[in-house]
Design a protein around this nucleic acid. Structure first.
Length: 222
DNA sequence: GTGTGATCATCT
DNA sequence: AGATGATCACAC
């Protein structure tokens, strides 16, 4: 496999993504010399990894953007045939110490979402027949930023409080906290509400489909 | 174990 | 159908 060199500018990255639009994933897999899996049950990150390869994202980077030099995060976004977002979007892990800071201004979530290249993946069913949609280079507008900030502040407070039973995917308008593990019995350490070390299921930050759906509508219908 | 990439399975 | 909780693979 030959990795593409990282793009040197935001515009170059966006143009690369634009040239992929309209192609299906069978085409992309062939171009990357990769087999298309029958489904994603055992390789849920397959689509994301193929887009990273195709666009020249830095391989194997940890706790950083996909394009560190450009400060841009790459995310695929599953949609139905009409371009309507059909699932939530993983953002980053949510450690129980508050997740890179309790304050929105300095947290990982804000840093990750400051500049995102969204690549819609259109259609369901057989992976190879899903198509790459029109990309969107995005920064939260004032309204979106306010919603994210409010959600984060509330949820980070709960995380830090150690009140495990208060953590629920039902909370949050745009951001939510959900389990993120390899197995149901996987645990990590946390401080409970009495300040004692305890085991708990790892959690992560996600964007609700409602939020990204509205985001795409703003960008493409207005 | 924690980070990356997410979708699957199930219940309402 | 939409949403929540559970799960899969790989790098380091």
């Amino acid at each position: 496999m030959k990795l593409r060199a990282p793009p040197t500018s935001e515009d170059e990255l966006f143009q690369r993504a634009r040239r992929l639009a309209g192609r299906d994933l069978s085409w992309l897999a062939k171009r990357l010399d990769r087999p298309v899996p029958p489904d994603l049950k055992h390789d849920k990150g397959w689509i994301g990894h193929r887009l990273e390869e195709a666009l020249g994202a830095t391989a194997g980077n940890l706790a950083d953007c996909d394009f560190p030099k450009l400060g841009i995060e790459l995310k695929t976004l599953p949609t139905d045939e009409n371009g309507k977002v059909s699932g939530s979007t993983f953002v980053c892990g949510a450690p129980y110490d508050g997740g890179g800071g309790r304050h929105w201004e300095s947290c990982w979530v804000r840093k990750k979402l400051h500049r995102v290249l969204w690549v819609p993946i259109v259609g369901g069913g057989y992976v190879g027949s899903r198509r790459i949609g029109t990309p969107l280079m995005w920064t939260p507008d004032a309204e979106e930023e306010a919603i994210l900030s409010a959600d984060y502040t509330e949820l980070a407070r709960i995380l830090h409080s150690g009140e495990l039973d208060q953590i629920s995917g039902k909370r949050g308008q745009a951001l939510q906290l959900r389990p993120k593990a390899l197995h149901g019995d996987q645990t990590t350490w946390m401080l409970d509400d009495e300040g004692e070390w305890a085991r708990a299921m790892p959690r992560a930050w996600y964007l609700r489909a409602k939020f990204t759906r509205r985001m795409l509508e703003k960008a493409f219908l207005l």
